[in-house]
Design a protein around this nucleic acid. Structure first.
Length: 510
RNA sequence: GGGUCGGUAGCUCAAUCGGUAGAGCAGCGCCCUUUUAAGGCGUUGGUUCCGGGUUCGAGUCCCGGCCGACCCA
């Protein structure tokens, strides 16, 4: 190390001293009575406990010392007294730093102030740390550092830890929800020769042995539908998609998608299922908040926990940095369902669809002050109005149904008006959370629609998918849910980077 | 890609008009046998993101770059 600061130099020196004493600074296996939360739950006075974790605080009283030991489940206080452990162990103790992992065996007791504590009889060093941890009170605040060194964020910021615990619950409970309803989870290719199922730029790679270019998938859809052809009635997949596009508060190049397909259902049955799923997840998240609050959340209380008791599970409060509620999303069912054109008429004028394309364009630009690029097609002008004047302003759940068919080439056309498709777009909190369709299973129409969409780029049409459809796909309802955005919604996160453990950042020079 | 804002000790943050770079935490030394953001006394620690420029003098002003946040496309 070239320009090592004194804090690191000192820790390295302690490391060498430990080695000289014949102690392995990086430890070995240690049997524990349980995780720290489990030990706290089992806690009774005057019993022997073995507990391991990282030292996160040290209160030095001279001959007696109080330490905080932490793991991801919680915090427990350790008491160490020079006489109790003897001179040899006390010397070893003096070589410890905040951040080190230790394993402790000792007797439980409760202090004057009522804190459950383990009085150390013996302990082992399990891992020495060479760098100091961020400050104990404020934690790691630097946004960039929190993303690049997420481990430090998780270690020091209770709120961040809670968000990721919630993400874990959301993914797990989503699996459970679908499995409980007879859906089976499958895995389909990430490496694809044609990246189909959506309109997005794919990442490109190359397979050396086959000598072919491959793409990382942008959607799950076309393979899951092949499984409907293959006789699966209810399938789902939760996994990563990749889109080689911009990075923003709402976009990470890799993101987690759920797609589910349900034979013999349609978009309305799927809409009911999605309502049920999201309310189910909101209740599980609320239960987690309550459980944390009951357990007396160790460390600083996180903001969402503070408001958990008085809030209903279906009222999702989003807060600013100071903990003030900025808005509340009401998930109470039934959710509003409105046709796309009716919504557009509400905001853009009853006559919107009677205007000429040029008049629509003019109204969008002059009356609504929207930027309309000249190359936008007529339906895209309306879609732009929809996004700016409806989608972005919608907070409570809204199913937008019967969209124009140009927007959704993989959905079934409406029998009464075949310029529309039988679909919904679920919008919550200003973003599109989930599209759902009555799936198009007519191979002839599907070919036409894909050709219209592809334009000149016919090589992008997945012929293998069309071949599968020709063998017969049952009518089905399907849905895709962006799990990252759903997690943002349910945790109150304002950025996708706050719900993705390791968001993509430009590499820095170390 | 464009605009706005930001980058100061390991961490959290100060630094007035351009005038000796500071504090708290952490660390180090000493005191204290129930502390809990422990306390008390003392103390170490800086490529002010990088490179130029203006100036007697730059953390501060100007230009270029790097990284990030937000907004727009």
């Amino acid at each position: 190390m070239e320009d090592e600061n004194e804090l690191i130099a000192l820790r390295r020196k302690k490391l060498e001293t430990l080695r000289a004493k014949g102690i392995d600074p990086f430890g070995t296996t240690f049997d524990v009575s349980g995780s720290i939360a489990e030990v706290r739950a089992l806690f009774k006075e005057a019993e022997i406990f073995r507990v391991a974790g990282r030292i996160t605080a040290h209160r030095d009283m001279g001959k007696s010392h109080f330490l905080d030991l932490r793991d991801a489940t919680g915090r427990i206080q350790i008491y160490l007294h020079a006489k109790e452990v003897g001179p040899e162990l006390f010397d070893l103790f003096r070589l410890l730093d905040i951040g080190d992992f230790i394993g402790v065996e000792g007797t439980s007791f409760v202090t004057k102030s009522g804190e459950p504590t383990i009085k150390v009889q013996t302990f082992q060093l399990l891992a020495k740390t060479l760098r100091p941890l961020p400050e104990k009170w404020h934690g790691l605040q630097d946004i960039e550092a929190r993303y690049r060194q997420r481990y430090l964020d998780l270690l020091t910021n209770e709120h961040s830890r809670t968000v990721f615990e919630k993400r874990i619950v959301i993914i797990r409970e989503t699996r459970r929800f679908f499995e409980d309803r007879g859906f089976v989870e499958v895995e389909t290719p990430i490496l694809q020769t044609i990246a189909g199922g959506a309109a997005a730029q794919p990442f490109q790679t190359h397979h050396n042995a086959l000598g072919i270019d491959l793409y990382l998938r942008i959607a799950l859809e076309l393979y899951l539908k092949r499984l409907l052809v293959g006789g699966f009635n209810k399938v789902f997949e939760i996994n990563r998609n990749f889109r080689n596009e911009g990075i923003s508060r709402k976009h990470n190049p890799e993101f987690t998608m759920l797609e589910a397909y349900w034979a013999y259902a349609d978009f309305e049955k799927v809409a009911n299922l999605v309502e049920e799923l999201i309310c189910y997840l909101a209740e599980k998240i609320h239960a987690l908040d309550l459980a944390k609050m009951e357990a007396g959340a160790p460390g600083r209380p996180s903001v969402p926990i503070a408001g958990a008791r008085e809030s209903s599970p279906l009222q999702i409060a989003h807060r600013d940095a100071d903990g003030h509620i900025t808005r509340t999303i009401n998930l109470k069912r039934p959710w509003r369902r409105v046709r796309y054109r009716d919504l557009v008429r509400e905001v853009a004028g009853k006559d919107w669809f009677e205007l000429s394309p040029d008049q629509r364009r003019e109204r969008a630009m002059n009356e609504f002050k929207l930027e309309i690029l000249p190359q936008l097609a007529d339906f895209e002008v309306t879609q732009h109005v929809f996004e700016k004047l409806i989608e972005e302003k919608t907070i409570d759940p809204l199913f937008v149904t019967h969209c124009p068919k140009e927007l959704v080439p993989l959905a079934k056309q409406n029998v009464e008006d075949n310029s529309l498709v039988d679909v919904f777009e679920l919008v919550i909190n200003g973003v599109e959370i989930a599209p759902g369709y009555s799936e198009l299973n007519d191979p002839i129409v599907q070919r036409q629609r894909l050709e219209e969409q592809a334009g000149e780029e016919k090589q992008n049409i997945d012929e293998e998918f069309l071949l599968a459809l020709e063998h017969g796909m049952p009518p089905a309802g399907g849905v895709g849910i962006g799990m990252d955005r759903l997690t943002m919604l349910l945790t109150g996160a304002e950025s996708i980077r706050d719900v993705v453990l390791f968001p993509l950042l430009r590499p820095r020079k170390l």
